[in-house]
Amino acid sequence: MTAFAALPFLPDAVIFDMDGLMIDSERVSIACWSQAAQELALPFPAGFWLRMVGLGDRDCERLLLQTVTAEQVAALFARCHDLYEARTQQGLPLRPGILEILQLLHEHGVPRAVATSTRQPRASRKLAAAGLLPFFEVVVTSSDVAHPKPAPDIYLLAAQKLGKDPARCLALEDSPAGIRAAVGAGMTAIQVPDLVHPDEELRALGHRIVDSLLDARALLMPLLPVTGAR
Protein backbone atom coordinates (compact mmCIF):
# COMPACT_ATOMS: atom_id res chain seq x y z
CA MET A 1 0.00 0.00 0.00
CA THR A 2 1.22 3.51 -0.77
CA ALA A 3 1.90 5.64 2.32
CA PHE A 4 -1.20 7.62 3.34
CA ALA A 5 -1.82 9.98 6.23
CA ALA A 6 -2.92 8.04 9.30
CA LEU A 7 -6.51 8.37 10.42
CA PRO A 8 -6.81 10.86 13.31
CA PHE A 9 -8.99 8.63 15.50
CA LEU A 10 -10.84 5.33 15.68
CA PRO A 11 -14.21 6.23 14.15
CA ASP A 12 -17.36 5.82 16.22
CA ALA A 13 -19.03 4.54 13.03
CA VAL A 14 -18.16 3.85 9.40
CA ILE A 15 -20.62 4.84 6.68
CA PHE A 16 -20.38 3.23 3.25
CA ASP A 17 -21.54 4.27 -0.17
CA MET A 18 -22.96 1.33 -2.14
CA ASP A 19 -22.61 1.49 -5.95
CA GLY A 20 -19.03 1.52 -7.16
CA LEU A 21 -17.67 1.18 -3.63
CA MET A 22 -19.16 -2.06 -2.27
CA ILE A 23 -20.90 -3.41 -5.36
CA ASP A 24 -19.34 -3.31 -8.83
CA SER A 25 -22.49 -1.86 -10.35
CA GLU A 26 -21.47 1.42 -11.98
CA ARG A 27 -20.25 -0.31 -15.15
CA VAL A 28 -23.55 -2.15 -15.39
CA SER A 29 -25.48 1.08 -14.87
CA ILE A 30 -23.55 2.91 -17.58
CA ALA A 31 -24.02 -0.01 -19.98
CA CYS A 32 -27.78 0.08 -19.34
CA TRP A 33 -28.03 3.85 -19.87
CA SER A 34 -26.04 3.55 -23.09
CA GLN A 35 -28.10 0.63 -24.40
CA ALA A 36 -31.39 2.38 -23.55
CA ALA A 37 -30.26 5.55 -25.32
CA GLN A 38 -29.21 3.59 -28.40
CA GLU A 39 -32.52 1.72 -28.53
CA LEU A 40 -34.40 5.03 -28.30
CA ALA A 41 -32.06 6.72 -30.83
CA LEU A 42 -31.18 9.49 -28.37
CA PRO A 43 -28.07 11.58 -29.11
CA PHE A 44 -25.72 11.34 -26.13
CA PRO A 45 -21.96 11.81 -26.65
CA ALA A 46 -19.33 9.31 -25.56
CA GLY A 47 -18.43 9.78 -21.93
CA PHE A 48 -21.72 11.44 -21.00
CA TRP A 49 -22.78 8.68 -18.63
CA LEU A 50 -19.72 9.10 -16.42
CA ARG A 51 -21.13 12.49 -15.39
CA MET A 52 -24.02 10.68 -13.69
CA VAL A 53 -21.89 8.47 -11.45
CA GLY A 54 -22.78 9.05 -7.80
CA LEU A 55 -25.76 11.31 -8.51
CA GLY A 56 -29.37 10.80 -7.47
CA ASP A 57 -32.24 10.45 -9.93
CA ARG A 58 -33.21 14.13 -9.82
CA ASP A 59 -29.71 15.34 -10.65
CA CYS A 60 -29.45 12.72 -13.40
CA GLU A 61 -32.74 13.95 -14.81
CA ARG A 62 -31.48 17.54 -14.84
CA LEU A 63 -28.40 16.45 -16.77
CA LEU A 64 -30.46 14.51 -19.30
CA LEU A 65 -32.82 17.43 -19.83
CA GLN A 66 -29.89 19.45 -21.15
CA THR A 67 -29.87 17.14 -24.18
CA VAL A 68 -33.35 15.63 -24.68
CA THR A 69 -37.00 16.38 -23.87
CA ALA A 70 -38.86 15.48 -20.67
CA GLU A 71 -40.83 12.82 -22.57
CA GLN A 72 -37.60 11.28 -23.85
CA VAL A 73 -36.09 11.38 -20.35
CA ALA A 74 -39.08 9.48 -18.99
CA ALA A 75 -38.75 6.84 -21.71
CA LEU A 76 -35.01 6.58 -21.10
CA PHE A 77 -35.47 6.12 -17.35
CA ALA A 78 -38.11 3.45 -17.87
CA ARG A 79 -36.04 1.43 -20.36
CA CYS A 80 -32.84 1.77 -18.32
CA HIS A 81 -34.72 0.65 -15.20
CA ASP A 82 -35.93 -2.51 -16.95
CA LEU A 83 -32.46 -3.32 -18.29
CA TYR A 84 -30.82 -2.69 -14.92
CA GLU A 85 -33.34 -4.75 -12.97
CA ALA A 86 -32.73 -7.67 -15.31
CA ARG A 87 -28.97 -7.39 -14.77
CA THR A 88 -29.17 -7.04 -10.99
CA GLN A 89 -31.36 -10.12 -10.69
CA GLN A 90 -28.47 -12.07 -12.18
CA GLY A 91 -26.27 -10.79 -9.34
CA LEU A 92 -23.59 -8.11 -9.30
CA PRO A 93 -19.99 -8.69 -8.25
CA LEU A 94 -18.51 -7.20 -5.09
CA ARG A 95 -15.67 -4.71 -5.11
CA PRO A 96 -12.32 -6.08 -3.92
CA GLY A 97 -11.81 -5.87 -0.16
CA ILE A 98 -15.38 -5.10 0.87
CA LEU A 99 -15.95 -8.31 2.82
CA GLU A 100 -12.59 -7.99 4.56
CA ILE A 101 -13.26 -4.47 5.84
CA LEU A 102 -16.85 -5.25 6.85
CA GLN A 103 -15.77 -8.36 8.75
CA LEU A 104 -13.03 -6.40 10.52
CA LEU A 105 -15.47 -3.72 11.67
CA HIS A 106 -18.02 -6.34 12.71
CA GLU A 107 -15.44 -8.21 14.79
CA HIS A 108 -14.55 -5.00 16.64
CA GLY A 109 -18.12 -3.82 17.11
CA VAL A 110 -17.76 -0.64 15.04
CA PRO A 111 -21.25 0.46 13.89
CA ARG A 112 -21.87 0.55 10.15
CA ALA A 113 -24.37 2.26 7.86
CA VAL A 114 -25.05 2.63 4.15
CA ALA A 115 -25.58 6.04 2.55
CA THR A 116 -26.53 5.57 -1.10
CA SER A 117 -27.96 7.63 -3.94
CA THR A 118 -29.94 4.56 -5.01
CA ARG A 119 -33.59 4.77 -3.98
CA GLN A 120 -35.61 2.25 -2.00
CA PRO A 121 -36.57 -0.54 -2.40
CA ARG A 122 -33.85 -1.17 -5.00
CA ALA A 123 -31.06 -0.34 -2.52
CA SER A 124 -32.14 -2.98 -0.01
CA ARG A 125 -32.71 -5.54 -2.78
CA LYS A 126 -29.18 -5.02 -4.11
CA LEU A 127 -27.60 -5.21 -0.65
CA ALA A 128 -29.54 -8.37 0.14
CA ALA A 129 -28.69 -10.02 -3.18
CA ALA A 130 -25.02 -9.22 -2.60
CA GLY A 131 -25.14 -10.72 0.90
CA LEU A 132 -24.19 -7.38 2.48
CA LEU A 133 -27.40 -6.31 4.20
CA PRO A 134 -26.73 -8.18 7.50
CA PHE A 135 -23.54 -6.13 8.02
CA PHE A 136 -25.45 -2.85 8.46
CA GLU A 137 -27.53 -1.43 11.26
CA VAL A 138 -28.82 1.44 9.11
CA VAL A 139 -29.49 1.94 5.39
CA VAL A 140 -30.16 5.52 4.23
CA THR A 141 -31.08 6.20 0.59
CA SER A 142 -31.99 9.17 -1.56
CA SER A 143 -35.62 8.26 -0.85
CA ASP A 144 -35.06 9.43 2.73
CA VAL A 145 -33.75 12.96 2.12
CA ALA A 146 -34.81 16.11 0.33
CA HIS A 147 -31.37 16.73 -1.15
CA PRO A 148 -29.26 13.77 -2.40
CA LYS A 149 -25.49 13.75 -2.90
CA PRO A 150 -23.50 15.97 -3.31
CA ALA A 151 -25.57 17.57 -0.53
CA PRO A 152 -24.55 16.24 2.92
CA ASP A 153 -28.10 15.23 3.96
CA ILE A 154 -27.67 11.46 3.43
CA TYR A 155 -24.55 11.31 5.58
CA LEU A 156 -26.00 13.51 8.30
CA LEU A 157 -29.11 11.33 8.48
CA ALA A 158 -27.03 8.14 8.61
CA ALA A 159 -25.03 9.51 11.55
CA GLN A 160 -28.23 10.62 13.27
CA LYS A 161 -29.82 7.19 12.88
CA LEU A 162 -26.68 5.58 14.35
CA GLY A 163 -26.71 8.11 17.20
CA LYS A 164 -23.19 9.31 16.33
CA ASP A 165 -21.54 12.71 15.90
CA PRO A 166 -20.75 13.18 12.18
CA ALA A 167 -17.34 14.55 13.15
CA ARG A 168 -16.53 11.16 14.70
CA CYS A 169 -17.63 9.16 11.64
CA LEU A 170 -15.61 7.79 8.74
CA ALA A 171 -17.17 7.83 5.27
CA LEU A 172 -16.03 5.57 2.42
CA GLU A 173 -16.87 6.70 -1.11
CA ASP A 174 -15.87 6.20 -4.73
CA SER A 175 -17.44 9.18 -6.51
CA PRO A 176 -16.75 12.93 -6.43
CA ALA A 177 -20.39 13.64 -5.56
CA GLY A 178 -20.20 11.25 -2.62
CA ILE A 179 -16.96 12.72 -1.32
CA ARG A 180 -18.44 16.22 -1.43
CA ALA A 181 -21.42 14.95 0.53
CA ALA A 182 -19.29 13.26 3.18
CA VAL A 183 -16.89 16.18 3.60
CA GLY A 184 -19.85 18.56 3.68
CA ALA A 185 -21.27 16.52 6.55
CA GLY A 186 -18.05 17.11 8.49
CA MET A 187 -16.88 13.50 8.30
CA THR A 188 -13.42 12.09 7.75
CA ALA A 189 -13.57 10.69 4.23
CA ILE A 190 -11.63 8.09 2.28
CA GLN A 191 -12.12 7.86 -1.48
CA VAL A 192 -11.64 4.60 -3.36
CA PRO A 193 -12.04 5.78 -6.98
CA ASP A 194 -13.72 3.46 -9.45
CA LEU A 195 -14.72 4.89 -12.83
CA VAL A 196 -14.28 8.59 -12.04
CA HIS A 197 -10.98 9.75 -10.62
CA PRO A 198 -10.54 12.91 -8.53
CA ASP A 199 -9.42 16.08 -10.27
CA GLU A 200 -7.36 18.80 -8.60
CA GLU A 201 -10.46 20.63 -7.39
CA LEU A 202 -11.68 17.53 -5.57
CA ARG A 203 -8.23 16.72 -4.21
CA ALA A 204 -8.17 20.19 -2.66
CA LEU A 205 -10.80 18.98 -0.17
CA GLY A 206 -7.92 17.18 1.57
CA HIS A 207 -9.53 13.78 1.98
CA ARG A 208 -7.57 10.54 1.77
CA ILE A 209 -7.50 8.75 -1.60
CA VAL A 210 -6.55 5.06 -1.72
CA ASP A 211 -6.36 2.39 -4.39
CA SER A 212 -8.66 -0.18 -2.80
CA LEU A 213 -10.81 -1.05 0.19
CA LEU A 214 -7.92 -3.21 1.36
CA ASP A 215 -5.90 0.01 1.68
CA ALA A 216 -8.76 1.59 3.65
CA ARG A 217 -8.81 -1.46 5.91
CA ALA A 218 -5.07 -1.10 6.47
CA LEU A 219 -5.61 2.50 7.64
CA LEU A 220 -8.07 1.25 10.26
CA MET A 221 -5.96 -1.64 11.53
CA PRO A 222 -3.54 0.36 13.75
CA LEU A 223 -6.49 1.99 15.55
CA LEU A 224 -8.23 -1.25 16.50
CA PRO A 225 -7.40 -3.24 19.64
CA VAL A 226 -5.51 -6.46 19.14
CA THR A 227 -7.86 -9.43 19.47
CA GLY A 228 -6.96 -12.97 20.44
CA ALA A 229 -3.77 -11.91 22.25
CA ARG A 230 -2.43 -14.50 24.68
Rank of each mutant, 00 (worst) to 15 (best):
L133E: 09
V183R: 05
L133Y: 02
L162M: 10
A128M: 02
A129M: 06
V192D: 13
V196D: 02
R125A: 13
Q191D: 05
A123Y: 03
V139T: 00
A158F: 00
S175C: 09
Q191V: 07
L162G: 08
P134W: 04
E201A: 15
K126N: 13
E201D: 14
Y155D: 05
P166D: 13
K164Y: 01
G186I: 12
P176M: 06
L157H: 00
S175H: 06
L156M: 14
R180A: 14
T188G: 12
E201G: 10
G178Q: 03
A167T: 02
V192P: 13
L195Q: 09
M187D: 08
V196P: 02
L170K: 11
S124Y: 05
A181C: 09
P152F: 06
T188Q: 15
A167D: 04
G178R: 06
K164E: 06
A167F: 05
P148K: 00
V138C: 03
T188N: 14
D194T: 12
E137A: 14
T141D: 05
V192Y: 13
A129S: 13
A177Q: 03
E200C: 10
V196H: 01
S142F: 06
I154W: 00
D174S: 07
E200G: 08
A130M: 07
M187I: 05
V140D: 06
A181P: 08
I190T: 11
T188E: 15
A189S: 15
I179R: 02
S124Q: 07
E201Q: 14
P198D: 12
S124R: 12
E200P: 09
H197I: 03
G178C: 09
S143C: 03
D165E: 03
L132A: 01
I190L: 15
L127C: 08
S142H: 04
L127Y: 03
K161Q: 15
A123F: 00
E173Q: 15
Q160P: 08
L172N: 04
V196T: 03
G184R: 04
H147M: 02
A129E: 07
P198E: 09
E137V: 04
Q191L: 12
G131N: 03
D144M: 14
S142Y: 09
V140G: 12
